[in-house]
Every structure is written in structure tokens, then in C-alpha cells.
């Protein structure tokens, strides 16, 4: 389904650290939401953030592309580095950063535009195409990578809001992919979808791993086990445990992780 030019042999390539967070603190006014979180997220890997509601996993996710900048009362301390560059450095333009770090939200949020214009939105803003033919190509490639091309190729001018929930979410993923990001952040991307659409999106996430570092926040432990290679467990603003997914789910080190996974807390 994904573009043939991307070599699947990359899967076996040695993974290296893409995002490095060190002693991150986040405050919402007086509320200390994230406490001393340090984590190293690997490239070409799906990393899952799990934890009970309000544990800070979405907040931390939104720090990685500085979406928290749009919230007035939010304050971030500590360092987050992508490819070794501090993204909270004064010289970094958050608008540029967000083009590099794509984001998919909990509820599908297609713009009230045509399917084509939804995908072309990012490339147009960033001047990625020299002419219409190139833009068409970018749109097609993004829709193919979003695993939705076959369903919409005959109605690119139809409104994006007219698609089904699962199609809308894949459209949003394709839209995020269209700006050629290096990291893809997903904030509970399947929580508004039915099981069939969820399966489609999960399959897509697995394919996206070939090209991107994917970070996914999820409430479903089955989903985390299915799609991720690494899992981080958050509790009350702390990063409790971060390890290979298989280890977290079979042999967690921390008793809190075990309690959460077996359903005793959260």
C-alpha cells in the first residue's frame, strides 16, 4: 500500500535516538502536570505512551511539537532534542517545527474543504510544490501512504467531512504525512473509531514505521501491545517505566506498571 520507492529493508536498519527528552517539567498555571520526564525515543519505531487518564501522556506528546505554546497558561521546562537540536531554543520557529513533527488528533478533524485541498493544505503553506503536477503527485503519494487512495481517488473534489469516521482519520494521517514530517505524533488516534476502522489505522501505523518515528498515546493496552515496539508507562505525571513493549507487558519492573496492566489501577 505504501510507496514502492521506500525500501522495506530499512526495517532492519539499526535504530537510533530521534527524540531525547531530559528532565522535562510542565506546569498548567500552578498545576505541575509533568514531573522529571526523561526519555529517548528511537527512529523508525512505534513508541506507545500508556497510563490512566490525566497522567500527562497527552501533555508530554504535545510538548514534542510545541502545541502547548498555543495554551497561554502552559509552561515547559527542561530540554527536548530532536536529532540533537533543542526544540525549545529561542531560534527555533515553532511553526516550522510543527511541519517537521506531524500530529494526528483524537477526533478526526478534516477541514471543511475538499479531500484534495485537505491534503494539499500543508504542502501549499510550505511551498513544497512548484506546480500543479507536483502538487497532484504529493497529494497522491500522501493518500497512498495513508492507505486511503483507492477509496477516494475518484472523488478528490468531494468534501473531506463527507467521509466515514475511519476514512476521515486516515485522511488526517495522510494530511500529516503530506508535509514530509520526520516524527508522527498520534494522540489516541483510534478512540473515536469502530473496531474495523481501528484495525485499518493500526495496520497503517505499522506501515508508517518504515519511514517515521511514530509516538502514539493510547488507552487501549491491547493496541499498545499490537502496534508498538517500545512502551512508556506514565502515572501521575511521572514516567514510571520505559522499555520494550514485550517486556512491559510480560515482565514489568515496577509494581505500579504491573498493577495498571493487570487492571488494578487506572
Amino acid at each position: 500500500m505504501y510507496d514502492a520507492t521506500y525500501d522495506t529493508t530499512q526495517e532492519t536498519a539499526v535504530t537510533d535516538v530521534k527524540i531525547k527528552a531530559k528532565d522535562v517539567q510542565v506546569y498548567y498555571a500552578d498545576n505541575h502536570a509533568i514531573k522529571d520526564v526523561s526519555v529517548e525515543i528511537e527512529d523508525k519505531t512505534v513508541t506507545a505512551f500508556i497510563g490512566p487518564s490525566g497522567c500527562g501522556k497527552s501533555t508530554f506528546l504535545r510538548c514534542i511539537n510545541r502545541m502547548n505554546d498555543t495554551i497561554d497558561i502552559c509552561r515547559v521546562e527542561g530540554d527536548i532534542l530532536i536529532d540533537g537540536d533543542d526544540i525549545y531554543d529561542k531560534r527555533v520557529d515553532p511553526v516550522q517545527l510543527r511541519a517537521k513533527v506531524g500530529m494526528v488528533f483524537q477526533k478526526p478533524n478534516p477541514f471543511p474543504k475538499s479531500i484534495y485541498d485537505n491534503i494539499a493544505y500543508g504542502p501549499r503553506i510550505h511551498g513544497m510544490a512548484r506546480n500543479k503536477a507536483e502538487l497532484d503527485e504529493i497529494v497522491e503519494r500522501a493518500l497512498r501512504r495513508g492507505a486511503i487512495w483507492d477509496e477516494v481517488k475518484d472523488r478528490l473534489q468531494a468534501p473531506g467531512t463527507g467521509l466515514s469516521g475511519g476514512q476521515q482519520q486516515r485522511l488526517c494521517i495522510a494530511r500529516a504525512v503530506a508535509t514530509e514530517p520526520e516524527v508522527l505524533l498520534m494522540d489516541e488516534p483510534c478512540s473515536a473509531l469502530d473496531p474495523i476502522a481501528t484495525a485499518q489505522v493500526e495496520e497503517l501505523i505499522d506501515e508508517l514505521r518504515q519511514n517515521y518515528a511514530v509516538v502514539i498515546v493510547t488507552h487501549s493496552m491491547q493496541q499498545a501491545a499490537r502496534v508498538s515496539q517500545k512502551t512508556a508507562f506514565f502515572h501521575l505525571g511521572h514516567l514510571v517505566e520505559y522499555d520494550d513493549t514485550s517486556k512491559i507487558f510480560t515482565n514489568p519492573e515496577d509494581s505500579r506498571t504491573e498493577s495498571y496492566i493487570t487492571g488494578r489501577i487506572g
Binding site: R98, N109, G122, I125
Partner: peptide, 19 residues
């Protein structure tokens, strides 16, 4: 969510408002 979607793609505030 509409604005978040646009900011998430790297649009500025006035681009988001206009488009």
C-alpha cells in the same frame, strides 16, 4: 480541533484563520 489540525501542520495563526 480545526485550529489544532492546522497548527499541527505548521500553519501560522493568520494562515489558519484565513484558510
Amino acid at each position: 480541533s480545526m485550529r489544532d489540525g492546522s497548527y499541527g501542520l505548521g500553519a501560522t495563526q493568520s494562515e489558519t484563520i484565513r484558510q
